[in-house]
């Protein structure tokens, strides 16, 4: 087992464990700050798939934008939770058991499918050219955005503008509706 494997599995374990804690934690502040750890470890995993630009975008967009938004929404919506942590009804509800059951079942199905699949047998896997670690993927992403994927890019920019205007409209203070 080389250094690459050790670092990869360290970050993989960090993603899964911190994600699990984010989900089961009762305290929302801790849960949101642990979400940071998950997102950064996930960005490290993207680096192992030789997607350095995606990893950078993940850090900038998620850790820089989404996390701050979530903290703001939390602070604006949970006044009473910040003052005194009210006791949460302990014990599992039926809802919990159904949720755990469905998630575990889904996990089992996905694992079974992935383990049974031999990825080397597909001919589309063989005829593709893999990315080398020395390739400049940022350069290629820039070229492809303006050539092959120009239409999705334009649709995405219009959609992003619509979503942000809509969000600003919804969050406006003292609106008529």
């Amino acid at each position: 087992m080389g250094e690459e494997q050790i670092i990869f599995y360290f970050f993989a374990a960090s993603v899964l464990i911190s994600a699990l804690f984010v989900v089961v934690m009762k305290n929302l502040v801790r849960s949101i700050f642990l979400f940071f750890v998950t997102l950064f470890s996930l960005a490290a995993l993207y680096l192992f798939a030789l997607a350095d630009f995606i990893a950078l975008a993940q850090v900038v967009i998620y850790a820089g934008g989404v996390l701050v938004l979530m903290l703001f929404a939390f602070m604006l919506s949970n006044r009473e939770l910040l003052n005194s942590l009210k006791p949460v009804a302990s014990g599992f509800k039926v809802n919990h058991f159904a949720g755990i059951f469905i998630s575990l079942l889904f996990l089992f199905i996905l694992f079974a499918v992935i383990i049974k699949t031999d990825f080397n047998q597909f001919d589309w896997m063989e005829e593709r050219v893999p990315i080398n670690a020395s390739d400049n993927t940022t350069h290629q992403i820039g070229i492809q955005t303006m050539t092959t994927y120009l239409l999705p890019f334009e649709i995405l920019s219009v959609f992003l503008m619509m979503a942000l205007i809509g969000a600003a409209h919804l969050a406006r203070k003292g609106g008529k509706t």
Binding site: Y46, A49, L50, A51, F53, I54, A57, Q58, I61, Y62, G65, V66, M125, R128, V129, P130, I131, N132, D135, T137, Q140, I141, Q144, T145, T148, Y149, P152, F153, L156, F159, L160
Partner: peptide, 21 residues
């Protein structure tokens, strides 16, 4: 990682991140 020529995986990963935001 296995698609250097078209780069579809990385492009749509980028699109998905922006849509999620």
């Amino acid at each position: 990682k296995y698609d250097k020529i078209a780069g579809g995986g990385q492009m749509f990963a980028l699109f998905a991140i922006v849509l999620a935001a």
